[in-house]
């Protein structure tokens, strides 16, 4: 068992290097757009995803819990979800030039996770719940979708400004059309809102079972409702209020900054019960 635990630690250390290696190839592909660089980038990302799957499964089997019970473990699962969803998007759309932006954040998340994660030998009794497992998984999927929406929105604003100012440089040459970026951001937000709603419902349900309340003024819960409202506003903004796509993109970026705030400041600096450990 000790040997397997050591193996988990080794994989945890090497995993960020694999992601950075893949990120370098995505960066080269973005600059040069040579198909062979794109193929190496995709292949290295696939291998890293396989390694990451092995890491999460092995950790789950050895320590007998789904490794998502503290913020650093959540970072790793978030990185994994972004990588896998991005890989599916790239394979289906054949657009690999946005890869660098996705993989870069994956690299950062996994580096932070690998640097600070410690293996939990025992799991708190309160966290042994199927409802909690689905709650955290939904939240991670929602954050993944919101992250992707943010990247596509940022790229949208960048290309929009480039076109407005007639700058026909690297971004003009490499990025897909404004409409395609808008569609991808929109779809990601719809998926994100769905999973966020699910996470809120399941979280409230779990809280009722464990603590006898559906809602309290916990900072994490308040931030989650706030994030949820912002994304609902963005989705309605286009159809109902006819806000411009650039305005909506800025909202999406603000929404994601709030998520980062929720995962960092709220988790570490406040008294939220989401700390668990």
């Amino acid at each position: 068992m000790d040997k397997l635990a050591n193996l988990v630690s080794v994989v945890r250390i090497v995993l960020p290097f694999f992601y950075w290696f893949s990120g370098i190839f995505y960066f080269v592909y973005f600059l040069k757009k040579k198909p062979k660089h794109g193929k190496v980038a995709s292949l290295s990302l696939l291998l890293t995803i396989i390694l990451h799957t092995f890491y999460l499964v092995l950790k789950g089997v050895i320590f007998k819990y789904f490794p998502i019970i503290n913020v650093f473990e959540a970072f790793s699962v978030l990185a994994f979800a972004i990588a896998i969803i991005y890989f599916i998007v790239e394979t289906t759309t054949k657009v690999g030039t946005t890869g660098i932006f996705m993989v870069l954040i994956v690299c950062l998340l996994q580096t932070i996770s690998s640097s600070f994660t410690v293996n939990m030998e025992t799991m708190p009794k309160i966290l042994k719940s199927n409802v909690l497992f689905f709650h955290t998984s939904s939240a991670i999927l929602a954050y993944t979708a919101f992250f992707m929406a943010t990247v596509y929105s940022t790229l949208f604003v960048t290309l929009f400004q480039n076109l407005k100012k007639s700058k026909f440089g690297l971004f003009f040459n490499r990025l897909p059309s404004l409409e395609a970026l808008d569609n991808m951001a929109n779809r990601s937000m719809v998926i994100g809102v769905f999973f966020m709603a699910l996470a809120i419902i399941l979280g409230s349900f779990w809280k009722k079972i464990q603590l006898g309340l559906f809602f309290d003024w916990d900072p994490k819960i308040i931030t989650a409702y706030f994030i949820f409202t912002i994304y609902i506003m963005i989705l309605l903004g286009k159809k109902v209020f006819h806000w411009s796509r650039v305005q909506l993109s800025y909202f999406a970026i603000v929404g994601f900054l709030l998520i980062i705030f929720s995962m960092t400041v709220v988790n570490f600096a406040t008294n939220s019960f989401h700390k668990f450990n």
């Binding site: 076109l163 897909p176 059309s177 409409e179 569609n183």
Partner: peptide, 24 residues
């Protein structure tokens, strides 16, 4: 190589620019 990449005339540049705004 990238010999055939990008628009080589004003008319084609119009198409290239349109493709940067509209996906289809």
């Amino acid at each position: 190589t990238k010999l055939g990449e990008g628009a080589g005339s004003i008319a084609l540049a119009t198409v290239e620019l349109s493709e940067k705004i509209f996906s289809d």
